[in-house]
Computed example of a mutant assay.
Amino acid sequence: MIPEQKPEQKKRLYERRRFQRVNINLLGRFMLENKREYPCQVINMSPGDAAIIAPVGGKLNEKVIAYVDHIGRIEGKIARQFDGGFAVLLNATSHKREKLAAQLTWLANRDILNLPEDRRHDRQEPKISSSRMTLSDGRQYTCRVIDVSLSGAAVSMAVKPAIGTPITLGKMRARIVRHLPDGVAVEFSSIQPMEVIESHLS
């Protein structure tokens, strides 16, 4: 005889079946119950759970609060551990889940539109290319914005901060996501209208 599932087990199974995971690549920071913060990367997510790569792993059922670029604040408990990270079962209201579903749909569609052959339609040369990059420790570097889109920019500069480094490009908060032959690619922490982005970059 198959044992009767507990209500919590039924809920988790229902959540896994209800929500479809989206493969994403979003940077952020998370906090465990010890109140210490660590950088992280969300590699896939649904309105019900998220898989997170992190330098520090927590314990099963430990509470996690994370701030993820383009998503915002999420929280939940560690439901599963894997090599290099863990999966979090999210604790969210129905309204929050609907919002997450809309955000994930937008991110999935953005990734489809940003295939290499289509990227030239999404990116454009800024009207003013000169800018300044500021690191979290206050160091500043003069740079040139090669091209820009709603989600990020390619920047020509003499130094190459490590991938994942939080920076400010002009007045836009961003993170380094890729190294280029003559600079870096950055992803903005929020989506803004193009005219706002250009005014904040210069």
Score class of each variant (00 low, 15 high):
M1H: 05
M1Q: 05
P3Y: 07
K6L: 14
K6P: 00
E8T: 14
K11G: 01
R12P: 07
R12M: 11
Y14P: 09
Y14T: 13
R18H: 15
R18N: 07
R18A: 10
F19D: 05
I24D: 01
N25Q: 01
L27I: 05
R29W: 02
R29I: 10
M31L: 04
L32D: 10
N34Y: 05
R36D: 09
R36G: 01
E37Y: 09
E37T: 06
Y38F: 10
S46Y: 11
G48A: 10
D49K: 07
A50F: 01
I53H: 03
V56D: 00
K59I: 15
V64W: 01
A66W: 03
D69V: 05
I74V: 15
G76F: 00
G76S: 03
G76A: 04
A79K: 08
D83E: 10
G85I: 15
A87F: 00
V88Y: 00
L89H: 09
A92M: 08
A92R: 02
A92L: 10
S94Y: 04
A101C: 11
A108L: 04
R110T: 12
L113Q: 06
E117P: 09
D118R: 09
R119P: 07
R123D: 01
E125K: 08
E125L: 12
K127Q: 11
I128T: 12
S130I: 07
S131T: 09
M133S: 03
M133C: 13
T134L: 11
L135P: 15
S136N: 04
G138C: 08
R139M: 12
Q140Y: 02
T142Q: 05
C143D: 05
R144G: 00
D147K: 02
S149G: 12
L150Q: 11
A154W: 02
V155K: 07
S156M: 05
P161M: 03
P161G: 07
G164S: 07
T165D: 04
T165W: 09
T165S: 13
G170R: 04
K171V: 06
M172T: 00
R173E: 14
R173N: 11
I176E: 08
L180S: 08
V184P: 11
A185N: 06
V186N: 07
S189P: 00
S190H: 04
E195W: 06
E198T: 03
S199K: 05
S202D: 04
